[in-house]
């Protein structure tokens, strides 16, 4: 029972933001600094009240990630050669193969991590960026939950890249069977990294800023 307004004894707030008070809050260590400070005197993190270029960076990384997601899905992820015959599998192809084996659970995990999460992330980040750009009337807590979820789950897309690495390292029986990585592995890994950077560039404080501006109009 320590949620907001539930008799929280340790914190009392004048509902004012650091920016409105003419101060800068350090996002690293929560210290409140003077507006003129360039770096936080306690932890040395770079301070910025609001970064005007944040949304541009979000969109730049988003676009790079989205573009790389296309070759990641069209090119092969795994190249398996068994007794002279080579077969190639894309991300979705690998999922279908798992379904044929009857491992529905694992197929579900791989499909979720490599297709659902990236696509969902692109949609969610674009949605957040557009709302913050235009100003919005959505409840800020809903947007924050969405953002925190996106930020947290993004890293899990790397599963498929690691699976490829493990398979390649283990299955090296020269004549009988070898597995080699395909070009899609690189594209996919880069796509995940770029979308993570896109989410990290997003300034959650903007969610509240933009709703304030609207109510003042």
């Amino acid at each position: 029972m320590d949620g907001p307004g539930h008799g929280d004894a340790a914190l009392s707030a004048p509902t004012l933001t650091a920016r409105e008070a003419g101060l800068v809050g350090c996002r690293q260590c929560t210290r409140v600094c003077e507006a003129a400070d360039e770096r936080c005197p306690r932890c040395g993190a770079r301070l910025s009240s609001r970064d005007p270029g944040a949304l541009q960076r979000v969109w730049a990384w988003w676009l790079a990630g989205a573009l790389l997601f296309i070759p990641a899905n069209t090119y092969p992820m795994l190249i398996t050669s068994t007794v002279g015959r080579a077969s190639e599998a894309t991300i979705v192809g690998g999922v279908i193969e798992l379904l044929h084996y009857g491992s529905y659970g694992v197929a579900g995990i791989v499909f979720f991590a490599s297709v659902m999460i990236p696509v969902g992330k692109f949609v969610a980040i674009a949605y957040l960026a557009i709302l913050v750009q235009r100003g919005h009337r959505t409840k800020p807590k809903h947007l924050l939950h969405l953002f925190e979820f996106v930020e947290w789950i993004g890293r899990w897309s790397m599963i498929d890249v690691f699976v490829v690495a493990i398979l390649v390292a283990l299955v090296q029986f020269d004549l009988i069977a070898t597995i080699n990585p395909g070009i899609a592995a690189v594209c996919f890994a880069l796509s995940v990294v770029f979308t993570m950077l896109s989410a990290l560039s997003f300034d959650s404080r903007a969610i509240w800023d933009r709703i304030k501006t609207l109510s003042n109009d």
Binding site: L11, S12, T17, A18, G25, R27, L144, S204, R205
Partner: peptide, 10 residues
């Protein structure tokens, strides 16, 4: 103390 997520002062 400043909230690192929403910038509210406490």
């Amino acid at each position: 103390v400043c909230c690192p997520v929403c910038d509210a002062l406490h």
